[in-house]
């Protein structure tokens, strides 16, 4: 699903900062992978590159056998829309749209009619147990509920891969496990998933744990649970 070869990335804000120093990584279809590392290790940068939110300097990145390199902004928007679902630590819901409209947003950019996309949105909210909250605004929901809305939004466009950046970082331990259970269920249905985290309990529940340190892969291990 994901093939990364000798990926390099340098930031030029003031002094050049070589963040990724030759990453080689393969993620297969249906895998549940976690990325860990101290802050500054480059894990967020790697996730952004995988998510086509950022570009890289040299190396190759194939997503679903498509070379993702030097894409125009509108082409990368299209790929993000169709192939990638995002889940963020701070949920990143649009606060003036209700749950249903938030979930339906990716379909709007695909040109799906309002009626159809709202039906689909309610369907996904129902899967995540939030059907009754469809017309609520984000400000009226708890953190766990907001993250479930975000998961529904990530799923609605039927992407190839889901990228989660600290998905449980803002949640308490009970909710963390609930959200993690949902993510595992989604993965069980065949969805490839990459989770960036700094919590061992999360990482231990994944198939593959990638440890980054100073811009290179320190180790790829199989957590104890599996």
């Amino acid at each position: 699903m994901i093939r990364i070869k000798d990926l390099n990335k340098t930031y030029y804000n003031g002094a050049p900062l070589h963040v990724l120093k030759g990453i080689d990584l393969n993620i297969g279809k249906g895998e549940l992978v976690s990325i860990m590392g101290a802050s500054g290790s480059g894990k967020s940068t790697l996730l952004n590159i995988i998510g086509i939110l950022d570009n890289y300097d040299n190396g190759d990145y194939y997503l679903n056998d498509v070379l993702i390199k030097n894409l125009s902004e509108s082409r990368s928007a299209e790929y993000r829309n169709k192939m990638i679902g995002f889940i963020f630590q701070s949920f990143n819901l649009i606060n003036f749209k209700n749950a249903m409209e938030n979930v339906a947003l990716p379909l709007y950019y695909q040109g799906v009619s309002r009626k159809k996309r709202n039906i689909a949105a309610v369907e996904y909210l129902d899967k995540l147990g939030l059907k009754d909250w469809a017309n609520h605004m984000p400000s009226e929901m708890s953190g766990g509920q907001k993250q479930r809305v975000a998961i529904a939004r990530a799923l609605i466009a039927k992407p190839q891969i889901i990228l989660a950046d600290e998905p449980t970082g803002a949640l308490d331990s009970k909710t963390t496990q609930e959200v993690m259970d949902i993510l595992k269920t989604v993965n069980d249905e065949g969805m490839t998933m990459v989770i960036v985290t700094h919590e061992n309990e999360i990482a231990n529940q994944t198939h593959k744990l990638i440890r980054l340190k100073d811009g290179i892969i320190e180790s790829i291990e199989k957590p104890q649970l599996f």
């Binding site: 509108s74 990143n92 606060n95």
Partner: peptide, 16 residues
């Protein structure tokens, strides 16, 4: 900024 960022992450093209 956040709203626009979210929209772009979800696949809104710049022109849109």
């Amino acid at each position: 900024t956040q709203e626009i960022g979210i929209k772009r992450a979800l696949g809104a093209k710049p022109f849109k």
